[in-house]
Nucleic acid binder design. Structure first.
Lengths: 189, 189
DNA sequence: CTTAAAACTTAATCAAGTTCAAGAAAAGAC
DNA sequence: GTCTTTTCTTGAACTTGATTAAGTTTTAAG
């Protein structure tokens, strides 16, 4: 859980008391590969901070294919904010891509955390600001670059990551089919 | 400026004192069509709330073409969070698409606002949560639907909007060329 | 009212990526 | 270790949308 406190401390100042409050309100949890934190049609009940490992958020499209819309690794939060906030059934699955350790912030105690540690409100504002900017940047990548260019860019940024995830997950994340990814890779060799 | 207070009040509770503080810190401003709030290579100095009118955020791609990455209308905020927060030169232009009225939150007084009205920190957290969810949803639209489907969806959601903006701006926002938009429209008639 | 600039249309050609289908390789389960 | 399931590959036919270039319409300016 020290990773979580370290991450928060990069954005806001925390007293020792704040740290204890955070640790008392959030839950440490181990998650096995392929386990779910959220399934389609369920209401999302928590925000999850990844201490170690990798998760993905995906949905099933009209053709019945899984489409990965987000990957999250160490030091990222993953949730469905829309379902979490509106208490509405989610369209998404959140699944562990590999064995992982997480810190859980349950919706029912989220408000307690904000009132006891007001700095956390600021922390989430800053984290969301980054997430929003990254998401807009991703739209720009989709518009500006071809599938092959996006693959090259991704594999340069996260070379070790390529080994950890199945190609069909990466293909849908990058916005093309697994067959096309296969062809891109064939070209390199 | 009452529109701004009304919008904030939808997310958090404000006392009369809070309202006065907000009004004293934020600046009302009129903007003419085609005027800029931000230009490429400048550092973004404020977050802008649109009281009335329409703005767009765009960049110039390698081919020298303007690509509109965001539209913002009444009751939305527009800025470049990345430039604003990191104090780095922006890659974007923010321009009025039509005559507009805005409320300006200057970066230099933003912290004063948050310390005097802590509810604003929460308000921005909630606004950013929505903006982030909307941006991810947009990626999903790009992946799931064809250009024609995205145009139909947009024109059903914002029929009056189609009349207000030039087609080349909409085409780049939806992720295709003006020529292609022209073809889609020709098919309908 | 006239002219220039900005925005839009049309059509032919081309490239990027999908679909479908079949087979090969890797990874888990027993 | 073998069997089953999951993941990856290959190729042919097809679709969507980009590009280029010329012409038309609309808007704004003097």
């Amino acid at each position: 859980m020290q990773r979580l406190l370290a991450h928060i401390s990069k954005f806001v100042e925390l007293t020792e008391e704040d740290k204890e409050t955070i640790l008392s309100i959030m839950q440490y949890q181990q998650v096995k590969k392929k386990e779910y934190l959220l399934r389609q049609d369920a209401v999302c009940n928590a925000n999850y901070f990844i201490l170690k490992g990798c998760f993905r958020r995906y949905y099933i499209d009209e053709k019945g294919t899984e489409q990965t819309i987000q990957f999250a690794i160490d030091n990222w939060w993953i949730t469905d904010y829309d379902s979490l906030e509106r208490r509405a059934p989610s369209e998404y699955f959140i699944q562990a891509v590999e064995n992982a350790e997480i810190a859980v912030l349950d919706k029912r105690v989220q408000e307690d955390l904000f009132s006891q540690v007001p700095a956390m409100e600021r922390y989430f504002r800053l984290v969301l600001q980054r997430a929003y900017a990254a998401s807009v940047q991703r739209i720009r990548y989709i518009y500006d670059f071809s599938g092959e260019e996006r693959y090259n860019h991704f594999s340069n940024l996260f070379p070790e990551f390529l080994q950890r995830i199945p190609q069909y997950m990466l293909a849908s994340y990058l916005g093309f089919t697994p067959e096309f990814l296969s062809k891109i890779r064939a070209k390199k060799i």
